[in-house]
């Protein structure tokens, strides 16, 4: 197989990989919590497509039993079924994620991760400083 046929013959995988990379890249690079969730969705969709495309049998019909017909090639139904579950899981995850984003927005007033992290770190630092101060005060007292 040449490189070209490699690319062309396995195009579905290339598409999946591209989608996957896009999803991952969004999750790594975007600070907006909603965008991250969208990246996650794209990433999940790529997997769904991976499964669905691997269930396809070349020349096969959709896996619906045709009465009386012999020698019919059916596509594999199982990956589709599995993906129904995966889609449900994905939807649920997205829902929980979005709900959390709403709560983040309420609690922090922003949905940018770097800002939230900065606020958190400021809180952490304050706590640490208070701890150190308490320790120092205690040290003097003792």
């Amino acid at each position: 197989m040449t490189f070209l046929s490699n690319v062309a013959g396995l195009w579905n995988y290339w598409a999946v990989i591209t989608l996957m990379m896009i999803g991952l890249y969004i999750m790594i690079s975007r600070g907006n919590l909603v965008k991250k969730l969208m990246g996650m969705n794209i990433f999940q969709v790529s997997v769904i497509m991976l499964y669905v495309s691997m269930g396809k049998v070349a020349g096969g019909t959709p896996p619906i039993l045709i009465e009386g017909a012999e020698d019919v090639a059916y596509s594999n139904p199982l990956p589709h079924v599995l993906m129904l579950t995966a889609i449900v899981v994905g939807v649920a995850t997205t829902a929980v994620g979005l709900a959390l984003v709403v709560r983040v927005k309420e609690a922090y007033g922003t949905v940018e991760e770097d800002e939230v992290v900065a606020i958190d770190q400021a809180t952490d630092r304050e706590e640490a400083a208070a701890a150190r101060a308490a320790e120092a005060a205690h040290g003097e007292g003792a």
């Binding site: 999750m27 790594i28 975007r30 600070g31 991250k36 991760e113 770190q121 952490d124 630092r125």
Partner: peptide
């Protein structure tokens, strides 16, 4: 290793994702 140091501090999600990759 301190709470505000690199290893003592939770990274943002992006970094963990990158590490997974």
């Amino acid at each position: 290793h301190r709470p505000d140091g690199v290893l003592g501090n939770p990274w943002p999600t992006g970094a963990t994702t990158l590490w997974a990759a």
